[in-house]
Design a protein around this nucleic acid. Structure first.
Lengths: 348, 348
DNA sequence: CCCGAAATTTGGAACGTTCCAATACTCCTA
DNA sequence: TAGGAGTATTGGAACGTTCCAAATTTCGGG
């Protein structure tokens, strides 16, 4: 039995042609649904195709056409539900575009990232959606971006002018901070994330902006960096709680960090929401499920993914350079961890 | 500026050859690191390559070699963290194999599944790892499996003899049930999952087996089906709690269902672990983070993914049919939701 | 300085498509 | 019934590799 991807010659367009008594060219026309071919021959050819179990060879086709029908998605951390949602959104938007997504998970490694990008280029990817790994080199992106359509997602890279899909980190963090201020908090800290990430800088800027607008001090000792993981959040929060004057509220870099922070708070015998208010960022599914439910800034990864895909498709189709950027709205979702509930209950 | 995937002719092996003053064959040899070429020429060629910005064209290569270097992974629900972990595991194992993974999310749609499988075949995938969508037709798998190497993951399909990587659902469910019995429970229900899924059948069988071994009745009214989602779990649990004699413990189809069930229990004013014990299945990251932390059966999706990938690679390389199956251990992870803690505290 | 063997290098001929220009039908009209 | 306008079909010639058998160069002895 002839198996694909093996020596035994596969069924080709010529076999079909012979079997249907036409030329290979006609078969090719049928393949691309050309209106030129007579309905009767079309059927004859189609018949031969599934009689012989024909499988279209896209590799050969795109060799000839000098353009493949795949696009690459390079994700820095697929195990983070936020990025998984993003990937699904991209896939969904690509669904009927005639393009097929290649996926790769770089696990925040720039080395791995370079490898997968290379592999995608070698496969003739028509374009790339890239969530850059930490410490990605600007020059590398620029070089790439001169060579094929690219959309940067989620993480901005300063110094490149590539198309971009991000969420409004600044406004989101500001909104979260304002909410805490409205609830009466004055001592607010920022927890988690690493300083060399632009996303971090934006969120901290939003935080600081809101604080300043309310004439509140933002002390450097109170923005604590950490890896953007649960453990990172846990440790950072522990450190924060050991300060002499501990804050009454924290804005966290993202949901994962926030959940770690909540754990640290509980471990200290304190109650999240009452003793220390916590807000996160991203609104991953987990945010809804932890207890107390996490107040967070919602960024809708899925639709960011769709945007990114649409943007890439436009860029691919419109031939020449066509840079866009899209900043997704960041909406505050109030749940329990910020203590809005406690306030309300006390007030009533 | 010449961009890839566009009209403007790309740099090819012939350009390199000309520039380095050798023949295309030599360049080809350099490409595949053949020891035949003299070190000096190798360097000259390599030099020309990055001077001209050469990008290897894998499409052309695999056309000639009649074998592409991609494998497909078809996932039924990438938004489920369990499957995301699986995908990452697969990707990790493929990392240095020379194969690149194509990914697709079928979202449980058999139609979509057929489409993506087709697309992967058209791209010349050397093999497929498939997490079949619900209601996948046996005949379709058999037909496929006769044509190219396939590994079925997570979901068995009865009637096919394809290679298989699954977790030990029966033993896992039995182990979870036994644990509840040891804790003193007698009225135990099974919640969630749909009857036509083999995974469901296996887990229910494990549950029933353990019950029978302990001479406990397993009443049909107490295995409640539902979609394997949080909402499904919520509804199913609500229905269960409305029964006249409510169970004191539930074994859930998976973690997602269990979390939904916990919500329903809490909503009813009952306490998970004390009033109703809950165990899940899968040990997703969420299981650790909900409160109370979910007692669950751990199946390590990542390493199942790696196994699946390794199995597929073996099958691809060893030419002829080589069917294997692997049943991953299912380990009970005791946390809080089963109430083991309450018991202990009362006892001491 | 020539010989044979070993070490390198090299021109086609594939691989399965698409594209183009050209050919073959099929009617219809003058 | 020849001419022509459509309408359908078709044979190369690419596309960028790899593979093979054959050609060329290099080198150590005699």
């Amino acid at each position: 039995m002839a198996r694909e991807g093996r020596k035994s010659r596969a069924v080709t367009i010529l076999d079909i042609a012979k079997s249907a008594g036409v030329s290979k060219s006609t078969v090719s026309l049928v393949l691309k649904r050309s209106p030129l071919v007579k309905e009767e021959t079309r059927q004859r050819v189609a018949g031969a195709m599934d009689a012989l179990g024909y499988v279209y060879n896209r590799g050969a086709a795109s060799l000839r056409r000098a353009r493949a029908d795949i696009v690459g998605m390079v994700i820095n951390d697929l195990s983070n539900p936020f990025f998984a949602e993003l990937a699904i959104g991209i896939e969904r938007a690509l669904q009927n575009s005639g393009f097929v997504p290649f996926i790769a998970n770089t696990a925040e490694s720039v080395v791995r990232q370079a490898e997968v990008v290379r592999s995608m280029r070698e496969h003739g990817a028509a374009g790339l959606i890239l969530c850059p790994a930490l410490d990605t080199d600007v020059a590398e992106i620029s070089r790439l971006e001169a060579r094929l359509p690219i959309v940067l997602a989620i993480r901005r890279i300063i110094g490149t002018r590539a198309s971009l899909v991000v969420s409004d980190n600044l406004a989101g963090a500001a909104r979260a901070t304002e909410h805490l201020i409205e609830l009466g908090h004055r001592d607010i800290a920022f927890v988690g994330g690493v300083g060399r990430m632009v996303v971090f800088q934006d969120r901290v800027a939003g935080f600081a902006g809101a604080m300043e607008k309310a004439r509140l001090a933002v002390e450097p000792a109170r923005t604590i960096e950490s890896m953007p993981t649960k453990d990172g959040g846990f440790d950072a929060m522990k450190r924060l709680l050991s300060l002499d004057r501990r804050p009454t509220a924290v804005v966290c870099f993202n949901d994962v960090v926030a959940i770690g922070a909540m754990l640290a708070i509980a471990r200290q015998g304190l109650t999240v929401g009452r003793d220390v208010a916590v807000v996160g960022f991203d609104d991953t599914a987990e945010a809804r499920h932890v207890s107390p439910a996490l107040t967070t800034v919602s960024v809708d990864a899925g639709s960011l993914g769709e945007r990114a895909a649409q943007m890439l498709l436009r860029q691919i189709n419109e031939g020449e350079r066509r840079l866009e950027s899209y900043v997704g709205e960041a909406r505050l979702v109030v749940r329990e961890s910020c203590g809005a509930d406690f306030k309300r209950r006390i007030a009533s």
